[in-house]
Simulated assay, not measured.
Amino acid sequence: MGLVFRKRKKIGPLILNFTENGYSSWSLKIGRWSWNSRAKAHRFDLPGPFSWKQDKSRS
């Protein structure tokens, strides 16, 4: 297992994600709710170490 480079740039509720190859994806986080452009999934932070995730709909 090798070392992995990751960097996040936060601009208000918008989060830009970068890897060693450059731009990776963007996320939007408002309060406990978030959405990621790569996974196209909604996530809601629950109390403690838990979170709820709804994957993109499958047709």
Rank of each mutant, 00 (worst) to 15 (best):
I11M: 13
K53W: 00
F18T: 05
D45P: 00
S25P: 00
S24I: 00
K9E: 13
T19P: 00
K56D: 07
H42Y: 10
K56W: 12
W35V: 05
Q54F: 12
L16F: 15
W33C: 07
S24T: 04
S24F: 14
K53G: 09
S34Q: 11
N36Q: 11
L14K: 10
F18R: 03
D45W: 09
G22D: 06
P47Y: 08
K7Q: 12
D45A: 12
L46N: 02
L28T: 02
I15E: 13
R58N: 08
S59Q: 14
V4W: 08
G31A: 07
R43I: 01
S27L: 05
S59K: 13
E20W: 07
N36R: 04
V4M: 08
W35G: 04
N17H: 15
F18W: 09
G2T: 06
K10S: 12
D55F: 03
G2Q: 13
F44V: 14
W26S: 09
G22S: 02
I30V: 14
S37G: 13
R6I: 03
Y23C: 00
S24E: 13
K29N: 09
D55I: 03
L14N: 08
R8H: 05
K40L: 09
F50K: 07
R8W: 12
F44C: 01
N21H: 09
L3T: 11
S37D: 07
H42S: 10
G31R: 07
S27K: 13
F44R: 01
G48M: 11
A39G: 06
S59G: 03
S24K: 12
G22K: 08
W26F: 15
A39W: 10
L46W: 06
G2F: 09
R43K: 11
A41E: 13
L3M: 06
G31Q: 06
D45F: 03
V4T: 14
K56C: 03
T19E: 08
R6P: 00
R8V: 02
P13E: 01
F44N: 01
T19F: 00
L28E: 00
M1C: 03
S57C: 02
S34P: 06
R58G: 00
S27H: 01
L3Y: 10
T19G: 09
N21I: 01
S37I: 06
F50C: 11
I30N: 05
N36L: 04
D45H: 05
I15C: 04
I30L: 15
K40Y: 02
S37K: 12
K53S: 14
N21G: 02
P13A: 09
R38E: 10
V4H: 11
T19Q: 04
K53R: 14
S24N: 13
R38Q: 12
D55H: 12
R6C: 01
R8P: 00
S24H: 12
S25Y: 08
K10W: 00
G12M: 05
I30M: 10
G22E: 07
D55R: 10
S24Y: 14
S37C: 05
F18P: 00
